[in-house]
Design a binder for these strands. Structure first.
Length: 480
DNA sequence: TCTATCTGTCATTCG
DNA sequence: TCCGAATGACAGATA
């Protein structure tokens, strides 16, 4: 194919030979305002001049070819089609309107050949909308208000997905326990017991040592005095109070961690400060309801701390509503009591490393005590980290949902804008065709006969000259 | 009893 | 090497 730039010069050579003042190439007379004639001093016709100027002012359409010409025919307009992606991402165009201009201008009969394809373009704008976007504009409009509800669903789905993915891995940890070498926590297991589902509470060597049938919390207390010199792991059962006990205390904590100072009080302090209550409080209804105030000693002495799975479960089923009922101790709290850890858990968990180490040096602790303290510290920090992590995850999801909604709205706006541009373009094309025909209607050959728009086309060279070129010449040019 | 959700914990990675 | 943060995964508790 020859580009426009390539065939202009041959065309000019062909035409200029024939061009004479007052005539277009091929001996065309210019009785009107045809620019080519004007440049040669031809008479001016204001209307035609204006029309032509308007026509040629459409720079992006200056390659527009005469109606009826091969290159002008559907394929020429088809080149505009790619503006509408046929599939995948696109805009929603639900409008099914006839092509403007041609019909409105009453010249449709003239351009029937050329616009027979153009009109469907406009029609396709609507008819193909769903195919292009997979959903109609109306559907999009319907979707937008539902984003918020979808957010809920997607959040749920997200969680579900996470749960499913987690399920798929099933018992990974159990397997890991069997297959992996002892972790640093496992090293503390003086019994060398592997963790099992039944001794989940165990973590450090202390707890691992407790993996055998757990003593009740009460027993743990009772066993506490005997922790010195024996495997203390079995002195406290991991039948620690269930999560509630920790929830109950979380509402009364000064917690200098990441989210403590965030806008929504992730944690808050209470009038009392639990001796072993460093856990942050995610203010869930449950945790708030379960919030309790008590010291370890109070809790321990008063309630007979229950352990998870122990018969003393009623302490967890009804205590949270009563401010007078102290919350049960957590597993680590009970352990700390059992091992007589001489400092509070909040210090264990929240002190900086140096301060923490300094604190340890201030006391003479047994190996088991040190192990427990380090375990408490690790778990406490990890607990906060997990809470922060979860909060970030939720915030991230919310942020992404918002972003999704914004992008969907933006896409809809762009689709609408594109539709408007395409309508405008179709109108301009029709207008151009009108002008083109009007120009032809004023052209006369040497015999005063009008030129056939089917046999000739108007071409403008880069220097602004206009030539009337027979189609035969155009065809030869294209063949080159 | 089942389900969804919350929470603590462990294992692991990374800085 | 140790420590802590971050995070996926798991499991228990609870509504």
């Amino acid at each position: 194919m020859c580009s426009t730039a390539n065939y202009v010069l041959p065309l000019r050579r062909t035409c200029e030979v024939l061009a004479t003042p007052g005539r277009l190439c091929g001996g065309v007379s210019m009785p009107t305002n045809f620019p080519g004639a004007r440049s040669h001093g031809a008479p001016q016709d204001t209307d035609m001049d204006m029309a032509w100027q308007e026509l040629m002012a459409i720079t992006e359409l200056q390659e527009f070819e005469a109606p009826g010409e091969g290159s002008y025919a559907p394929t020429q307009y088809q080149t505009m089609e790619p503006m509408v992606p046929m599939g995948g991402y696109g805009m929603a165009q639900s409008h099914s309107e006839p092509a403007p201009a041609a019909c409105q201008l009453g010249t449709a009969d003239i351009y029937e050949g050329c616009y027979s394809e153009e009109v469907p373009v406009c029609h396709r704008l609507g008819s193909s909308a769903e195919a292009m976007y997979g959903q109609s504009e109306s559907q999009l409009n319907q979707r937008m208000p539902t984003i918020s509800s979808q957010t809920q669903h997607s959040l749920m789905a997200f969680r579900e997905q996470m749960n499913m993915s987690g399920t798929s891995q099933g018992h990974r940890r159990a397997n890991a326990c069997l297959t992996q070498g002892p972790s640093r926590h496992m090293l503390w297991n003086t019994h060398g017991h592997a963790r099992s589902a039944d001794d989940l509470e165990s973590d450090s060597g202390l707890s691992l040592g407790s993996s055998p049938p757990m003593a009740s919390p009460d027993n743990a207390v009772g066993a506490a005095p005997g922790y010195m010199g024996v495997d203390i792991g079995i002195t406290y059962s991991d039948g620690e109070p269930d999560g509630r006990s920790e929830h109950a205390r979380r509402a009364h904590i000064h917690y200098p961690m990441d989210y403590q100072n965030q806008s929504h009080s992730y944690f808050h302090s209470g009038a009392h400060h639990s001796y072993f209550s460093p856990q942050p409080n995610a203010l869930t209804p449950r945790s708030v309801k379960q919030s309790q105030v008590a010291t370890v000693s109070d809790m321990y002495n008063d309630s007979g701390v229950s352990s998870r799975g122990s018969s003393n479960t009623n302490i967890y089923t009804k205590p949270q509503g009563s401010a007078s009922t102290p919350a049960p101790l957590s597993r680590d709290e009970r352990r700390a009591v059992a091992l007589k850890i001489p400092f509070p858990m909040d210090k264990i968990i929240n002190l900086p490393v140096d301060d923490f180490n300094e604190l340890l040096t201030q006391y003479t602790l047994t190996e088991n005590q040190l192990a427990l303290v380090r375990d408490i510290r690790r778990r406490g920090k990890n607990k906060v980290a997990a809470q922060n992590c979860r909060k970030r995850k939720l915030e991230s999801i919310i942020h992404l949902e918002r972003e999704l909604g914004q992008l969907q709205a933006q896409r809809e706006n762009l689709a609408q804008e594109r539709l408007e541009f395409q309508r405008s373009l179709a109108f301009i094309k029709c207008r151009l065709t009108d002008l083109y025909s009007e120009v032809f209607s004023h052209l006369r050959d040497e015999d005063g006969q009008p030129y056939s728009i089917d046999e000739y086309s108007l071409q403008q060279t880069p220097d602004g000259k206009i030539y009337l070129v027979p189609h035969t010449t155009m065809q030869k040019r294209e063949q080159c």
